[in-house]
């Protein structure tokens, strides 16, 4: 555990207008680590991820990524730095085919090595000429992750990856997350504790905009014995 932190969130506060959503968040992610944030609806999980991806500007606090302050940067700059955000609505570009969706990502990153995408998601190779509008939820999730891993990001921020997916696809995602973490760190948020127990090495419990506990014990994570924090 002597590895330096890749991402550090310090004293982060965020609000939507007058309503404060995040309170003094302290969080860190190490290289190739799989971290999860769990909490009920409205706990502030997505807001935290959006602040980290520069989609929302926090009221105070900082997000340090490899020694660089991300607060104040634009979301496309953060993405180019290697911190990719995959949001929960499973929205791919509907009028574009799988190939065109991947091409867009390749063009932005200069990475045309699609083999690594097909290694994780072989099904995308079969669906290569199908338009985004005709993909299922699971296929869209694959495409979104596939798009994100082009350009070799160092951190993936994945919001509710299992929402609306069939159990068999969730099982596949567990394997994929383990494989992906060989190349990058993953921070995922969600409410699916069974998924989290199989994926995460470290878990943050979030409640009403605060991180109330950090669970590092493997057994505790496996048994979901931290659920009383939520």
């Amino acid at each position: 555990m002597g590895r330096p932190n890749m991402v550090e969130v310090r004293s982060l506060n965020a609000a939507y207008g007058q309503s404060k959503v995040l309170f003094d968040i302290e969080l860190n992610i190490k290289p190739n680590e799989r971290v999860a944030i769990v909490g009920r609806n409205g706990a502030g999980k997505t807001t935290l991820l959006k602040c980290m991806a520069s989609l929302l500007t926090p009221t105070t606090g900082s997000v340090i990524y490899e020694g660089t302050e991300l607060v104040g940067k634009r979301s496309y700059e953060v993405a180019r730095m290697g911190l990719k955000y995959i949001d929960q609505d499973k929205h791919v570009f509907l009028d574009l085919t799988v190939r065109e969706n991947l091409e867009l990502s390749s063009y932005a990153t200069g990475d045309y090595n699609w083999d690594k995408v097909f290694k994780h998601f072989p099904k995308l190779k079969i669906l290569i000429d199908r338009k985004g509008a005709f993909l299922s939820g699971g296929e869209r999730q694959m495409l979104m992750i596939g798009r994100a891993i082009l350009g070799d990001p160092k951190v993936l921020l994945i919001d509710e990856p299992t929402e609306g997916l069939a159990p068999s696809i969730v099982d596949d995602l567990v394997t994929t997350f383990h494989e992906l973490s060989k190349d990058c760190a993953i921070l995922t948020v969600g409410q699916n504790l069974s998924f989290v127990s199989r994926v995460a090495e470290r878990v943050y419990a979030m409640k009403e905009g605060k991180l109330v506990a950090e669970i590092t014990d493997e057994a505790e994570i496996k048994n979901n014995s931290y659920s009383h924090y939520l």
Binding site: A53, L55, R74, S75, Y76, A79, R80, K84, Y85, I86, D87, H91, F93, L94, D95, L96, E100, E103, L104, S105, Y107, A108, T109, R147, A148, G151
Partner: peptide, 24 residues
Amino acid sequence: SVFGATCLCVKDNEEKLRFLGYKT
């Protein structure tokens, strides 16, 4: 062209295009 595709994506969801690293 990729430019044409990015235009379509701006219409579809501009924010998502920024996630990919494009300055829309």
